[in-house]
Simulated assay, not measured.
Amino acid sequence: MKTIGIFFGTETGTTRLIAKKIQRKLGDEIAAKPLNVNRISVDDMLQYDALILGTPSYGVGAIPGRSAGCQEASWEEFLAKAGTPDFSGKRIAFFGLGAQERYAERFANSLFRLYEVFKGFGAEIVGNWSTEGYTFEHSASVEDGRFVGLVIDERTQGMLTNERLDAWLAEITPLLREKLGAPA
């Protein structure tokens, strides 16, 4: 498809709200309506050449899902049904939620787990993000000194969310649109 696919897993609804905010900022011509992974198949996702995937952090660095304590199906259940799809030729940017004060020792760890899975599926990953402005002890989602995607902390830094989204989208939108063959 010639739009960016936006997919998310959520537990409390915050990841869904961020996905909707991203879609509104990009606009209907550029981005498809965000979809919860507990309502789709992998074929729905594979229709897109450019994707934005979002996840909450849940459990101790686990892929969010029922075994991590989620009440509803999420990424864990989606991936269990997905098998080993081929995402080569797809370009993906990730965003993840976390609470740096409450979970400083494992801040936004689930983001890395999701990143790792899709990298293993052959996807090209874009959109890493600076750790500057965050305070935490450890995050598995830091690779080469940067987060593997945008990290949002609505609990303690909600006032920075729009600014961070705007800056991140300014970086990734041209890269995702390029994959669609659209002008940046």
Rank of each mutant, 00 (worst) to 15 (best):
65 G>N: 08
174 P>I: 12
162 N>Y: 06
70 C>I: 00
116 E>Y: 11
145 G>K: 09
176 L>G: 05
134 Y>L: 07
118 F>Y: 15
171 E>F: 14
169 L>C: 06
66 R>E: 05
8 F>Q: 07
142 V>N: 05
35 L>S: 13
132 E>R: 09
184 A>H: 02
181 G>E: 11
21 K>Q: 14
15 T>H: 05
84 T>G: 07
14 T>A: 05
52 I>R: 11
13 G>L: 01
181 G>C: 07
106 R>D: 11
78 F>S: 00
71 Q>G: 14
119 K>S: 03
148 V>M: 09
79 L>S: 06
173 T>A: 03
17 L>C: 03
144 D>N: 15
67 S>C: 03
112 F>K: 00
79 L>E: 03
73 A>Q: 10
47 Q>E: 05
92 I>N: 15
16 R>Y: 13
177 R>P: 00
28 D>L: 07
66 R>P: 03
164 R>S: 14
9 G>R: 12
9 G>F: 11
83 G>P: 12
111 L>Y: 07
4 I>W: 08
114 L>M: 15
23 Q>R: 08
76 E>F: 01
160 L>N: 08
22 I>D: 00
55 T>Q: 05
58 Y>C: 03
21 K>W: 05
123 A>F: 10
137 E>W: 11
139 S>H: 09
154 E>T: 08
86 D>T: 14
168 W>C: 04
178 E>P: 00
31 A>Q: 05
29 E>W: 04
105 E>L: 02
167 A>H: 07
136 F>W: 13
162 N>M: 13
127 G>A: 12
96 G>R: 03
91 R>C: 10
19 A>L: 15
165 L>I: 04
102 R>Y: 13
169 L>H: 10
62 A>H: 08
145 G>V: 10
145 G>I: 09
157 Q>T: 10
182 A>L: 15
125 I>L: 15
72 E>R: 14
72 E>Y: 10
154 E>M: 06
161 T>S: 11
156 T>I: 12
100 Q>G: 07
152 I>P: 13
170 A>I: 00
42 V>P: 00
96 G>C: 05
109 N>H: 07
166 D>H: 01
148 V>Q: 15
134 Y>A: 08
41 S>W: 11
167 A>Q: 09
20 K>W: 03
175 L>W: 05
6 I>V: 08
111 L>H: 08
109 N>P: 00
172 I>Q: 07
33 K>P: 00
133 G>A: 08
146 R>Y: 02
75 W>Q: 00
24 R>S: 14
5 G>W: 02
97 L>F: 04
114 L>R: 13
21 K>E: 15
49 D>M: 06
166 D>E: 12
92 I>P: 14
162 N>R: 10
143 E>M: 03
40 I>G: 08
45 M>D: 00
7 F>K: 02
121 F>P: 02
155 R>D: 15
85 P>L: 09
183 P>M: 07
7 F>T: 01
145 G>W: 13
103 Y>T: 10
138 H>N: 12
63 I>D: 11
122 G>W: 11
130 S>V: 09
70 C>Y: 04
107 F>S: 07
152 I>D: 11
98 G>N: 10
118 F>P: 04
96 G>V: 04
108 A>C: 14
115 Y>P: 06
130 S>H: 10
44 D>R: 07
69 G>C: 01
139 S>K: 05
59 G>W: 04
4 I>T: 10
90 K>Y: 12
110 S>T: 12
182 A>H: 15
90 K>T: 10
142 V>K: 04
